[in-house]
Each structure stands twice: as C-alpha cells, then as structure tokens.
Simulated assay, not measured.
Amino acid sequence: MLIFSQLHKFHKLVLINRSGGFKASLGYTWVQIMHKTTGGRKPKKKIYHRVHELDRVMELQKKPSLILQLKSIIQSQKKESLLLRDLEKEVGFVQKWNYMAVIEKYPSIFVVIGGKIDKSPPAVMLSEKAKKIADLEAEATVQMEPILVKNLRKLLMLSVDCRVPLETIEMIGNEMGLPSDFKQSIIPKYPQFFSLKDVSGRWYLDLENWDSSLAVTAREERLAREGLLNTSGHPKRAKISKDGNFSGPHAFHLDFPVGFRANVSYLEEVQRWQKMDFPSPYLNARRIEAADPKARKRAVAVLHELLSLTMEKRLTSAQLDAFHSEYRLPARLLLCLIKHHGIFYITNKGAKSTVILKEAYDGSDLTNKCPLLKFRDKFLELMGRRDVSSCIGASSTN
C-alpha cells in the first residue's frame, strides 16, 4: 500500500488505498520507498526527472483562473456587477484577497464603481472592452456542444458497462468544458445518446447507442494524420530510435525528459513494448485477462484516451482515480504512470497532484485548443500577457 508520489529530486511518499487513490504525502525518498516495496532489498537509486516547462503550466494558470472565475461570478449577477462587500460570500475569506489583488492589477478587465464619490457601496464590473469580448463566449459555447456530446459518448464507451456515475462526470466537468448545468442543458437534448438512471440510489449517465465510428482513440487519429498507418494497419517502417519512438500501429509517442539517459537494454525493452499489439480501450475490459501484458498496455491506452478527452489534456490524480472501477484502471495507478514517464508527466506544482499528457504540449503551450480555450485566450489577452495560452482551467484554483 505504500507507494511514492511527490516527484522532486527527493521524492515524498504517498499513501495509496487498494483502489489506487492518492491519499497523503510524507517525507520519504525514492530509495526508502523502493526499499519498502521490494521486500527490504536495497535498490538502485532512481530519480524522477522534472520537466520545468510542464511544471510551468500549473504556475501560468493561477491568475488567469482567478480572472475567469471572477468574470463568471460577475456575469451571474442580475446587474452584472458585484458589490465588493459580497465578494467574500462568493469566494471565501482567504480567496477574497487574491481576487481583490486581481481587480486592482487589471483595470483593463475589471472596473470598480461607486465608493466615496457618490456614496454608493463599491462594486466591480467588467470593463467595456472586456464585455465586448465576453459576448463572444456564446458563440464558443455553441461550437463546443457537438464536441462535448462526442466526448461524453466516448467517455461512456470507455467504461465496462457504458455508464459512469454522474458525480464522477461532474468531477471532471470543468476539465471537459461541460457547462455547470449540463444535466439540464445538454443531456435532455440528446435522448438518442444519453439517459440518466438511478442504480441502487446512485445516479449514472448511461449510453443509449454504441457508435463504432467513435471507438477510435486520439492516438490512432494522430497516427493516421501523420501517415504512420497504411490501409492494412501495418507500420510503414519499423525502426526504433534512441528516443524510444517507433513507427508502428501499436506505438505511443514518447518524450523522455532532458537528463534521462536510456541504455541499450532499456531501449530494447521499450521497442518490444511499442511493437506489442493490445486490445482497444473501447473493448470491454471484462473480456481481457488482467495479468496479460497486453492488458497492461491497454490500461496505458485507457489513461491516454481519458486525458485526451479533456480540454487541456490533464487531470488531477483524484480525478483519474474516480474512474478506477468503471475503467478497470491498474491497482497501482501511480506506478503505472511513472513507469510510462515518456507518455505522462506528474506535477505537484499546483494545489493538487496533476497528470499531464506530454504529447499535447510544446513546452508550456497546449498545441491544439478547442473553441472555449480559444475564447479564453482572447479574453485573457486583456491582461497584457500573450503567454497564457495553454493553462487556463477556470476551475483549477481549488
């Protein structure tokens, strides 16, 4: 049960329950933890290599996240202005001061009205320029709907019973780009795809119809775009390079961190793994023997696809663990993620441990953005920063 997490040069320990959940961190190094998990044998010291550009993703999103949250709070008010004295009710006493600092720092976005001059209580509202850009959000929302419907269907298709607890979907709703009222605004509009069912007192979102055309992973779509698959599904070439990448139909894109030096035996093992075929993540996991190495590779593909369904290709460790039962994720989820560090990156720079799909980023920038993220970028240009690009999760300040 004792497995490590906090991934600095010296690592910290995380208590993991039997379902693979991340619980609490203590002050152990990698060597101490591996000593415990290998039956007392002293292993060779290993280092989890940091990727500073991906750590920076979490740093860059802090102020943009506050700005977007405050924008939403202001827009939710009847008069589209918020009395400063009511700010604490909306965000809490501690966070209030962070929001006050944002209001003061960005007059191009937020305007304070009232106060001593006209003796009315001071309130904050969006600037005229910010209002004009905020109006574009409605268009982005319309463009997002077919994307969200498709991704919700794929999310359900990944599960063993084509159903996921509603609370689990709500847990990652912001990361997928779902509106807060998606249960009323989206689900009822598509009865041919979705239904809500009460199962033993727990609400589930069920898939009504299976669509084989959707059972294609983001990994397979990338290989097709790059021409690495021919019509028969075989690789055009079969060559392994020093970076571990392999041009085959069953290969994943690997991006090892700077400083990681793979020896020949490691690369040979990677090559064998890259060549190994495996069942589709959309194939029911009950039909697969868990101990089969192909099943373990399939688990990596499930994690890859789940992250690909989010806007910013990242989820917290707790969010990933919430899918443990429905997706039959590995019991030692953290070790699986760390073993495949060429695919996934774990950062603790934010308030919570976060898993990032490495191939989705160029440095700190998200390479492909949905309409909602493009709108947010445009709004946040009012900050005077044009590098806010990749990391603007409006719900990431928890």
Rank of each mutant, 00 (worst) to 15 (best):
L254E: 15
L68D: 01
P281G: 11
P330Y: 15
L228D: 08
D387Q: 03
F10K: 14
F193T: 04
H35T: 15
C370R: 06
E80A: 02
L223K: 11
E269D: 11
S265Y: 10
F375Y: 15
L152R: 06
K349P: 04
L126V: 07
V124I: 02
L60F: 05
I288N: 08
Q75R: 04
Q192G: 10
Y266F: 12
P249C: 14
Y28V: 11
I73W: 05
P43T: 07
P281R: 14
T168S: 04
D387V: 00
W30I: 09
I356E: 06
M144V: 01
L126C: 06
V302K: 15
D277L: 07
V51M: 15
K313H: 13
I73D: 00
L84V: 01
L136G: 03
N17G: 13
K183G: 04
P249Q: 12
L315V: 00
F344S: 05
K275I: 12
P191C: 09
H52A: 08
A351R: 06
G227K: 12
I288D: 05
E289C: 06
K44F: 05
G27F: 09
A224L: 15
I133C: 07
G177Y: 02
G350A: 02
L207R: 10
F110T: 06
T29C: 14
F256V: 05
L156I: 03
K46Q: 14
L15D: 11
L337F: 03
A262K: 14
K197C: 12
N17L: 09
P122Y: 10
E170W: 02
D321W: 10
K119N: 12
F246T: 02
N398Q: 05
V142T: 10
